[in-house]
């Protein structure tokens, strides 16, 4: 029998349709390996029948998939011995159809996507929260800095005031300790018997300082005014500041060329060119 006759005998169709017994099948397979024409023809027949079968494809009824796969799994688990124990080929089987990981694999893609979505959202929220925290901290720090700068400024101005004060006190101290100054004690007149004050007078520099020990507060709108009496004539030596009246510090008065006595009167605010003798409060002679 030549190859063409063999092909036309219909045995390949029988083979493909599963009609042959084992011996006949083995013979066909041997022919197919030996003769490429037989092999090609057999493949054509099989492809044609596959296509015919495939053309009859039917979508299985709903719910069947779950039942069939569940039963299939139960079946292969209850009879594991039925699979020929061939260690060499076992991994191949596992690789193709791992019963449990397969459904998981089908869901990996969507779950991976949703996982990365969740991760992205979580990171975004985390970053937003961190931003809020850092923003608050930054604001706090800015506030703290402003407060510190204010404090520093006020400290500096306090320092300046203190320095100024110190300079002033040092001058006062210098006046008080200086031997060039003559002290003139002014005592209260009958109008104000408790009133006490001192005038420090430097005849060389003509400087006059007033140191109030005790004076009644002047009526409102009135001011104390110091007078130097030179040859019986009163000379204006300036009005007293409120701090001086309260006895806080020395006050430098107008320079006086020469004087034999000093006196204070109560005058209208701003002072007056001539003393109102009736209001004389203290008087002292050198």
């Amino acid at each position: 029998m030549n190859i063409q006759e063999y092909i036309e005998s219909g045995i390949l169709e029988q083979y493909a349709l599963g009609e042959l017994d084992d011996a006949q099948r083995a013979q066909v397979e041997r022919m197919a390996t030996e003769h490429p024409e037989v092999q090609a023809e057999l493949e054509d027949v099989q492809r044609a029948l596959n296509a015919y079968g495939e053309a009859h494809a039917l979508t299985p009824p709903p719910g069947m998939k779950e039942r069939v796969l569940a039963n299939w799994q139960a079946a292969i688990q209850s009879e594991p011995g039925q699979a020929p124990a061939a260690p060499a080929t076992e991994p191949v089987v596992r690789q193709l159809t791992p019963p449990r990981s397969e459904p998981a694999a089908a869901e990996i893609a969507p779950s991976r996507v949703s996982w990365s979505m969740a991760a992205a959202v979580a990171l975004l929220l985390l970053s937003a929260a961190a931003n809020l925290v850092f923003y608050n901290k930054w604001k706090q720090a800015e506030n703290d800095l402003a407060v510190a700068q204010n404090q520093q400024a006020s400290l500096a101005s306090t320092m300046q005031a203190v320095n100024k004060n110190l300079t002033y006190r040092n001058q006062e101290l210098a006046v008080l300790r200086s031997e060039q100054f003559k002290t003139v004690a002014l005592l209260g007149t009958p109008a104000a018997p408790d009133a006490r004050a001192r005038v420090l007078y430097n005849p060389t520099t003509k400087a006059v300082y007033l140191d109030v020990r005790k004076l009644p507060a002047p009526p409102s709108g009135k001011q104390y005014q110091l007078w130097a009496l030179d040859q019986g004539k009163p000379v204006d030596a300036g009005t007293l500041a409120a701090a001086t009246v309260a006895g806080d510090s020395l006050q430098q008065m107008k320079d006086i060329a020469s004087a034999q006595a000093f006196a204070m009167t109560v005058e209208n605010e701003g002072g007056s060119p001539t003393p109102t003798l009736s209001t004389m409060t203290v008087l002292g002679k050198m």
Binding site: L58, K65, L69, W72, Q73, L96, T97, E102, P103
Partner: peptide, 13 residues
């Protein structure tokens, strides 16, 4: 096997 089922079940069925 799920993938296998999805690929072949209609034809086999």
């Amino acid at each position: 096997m799920t993938l296998f089922y999805e690929k072949y079940s209609a034809a086999l069925y």
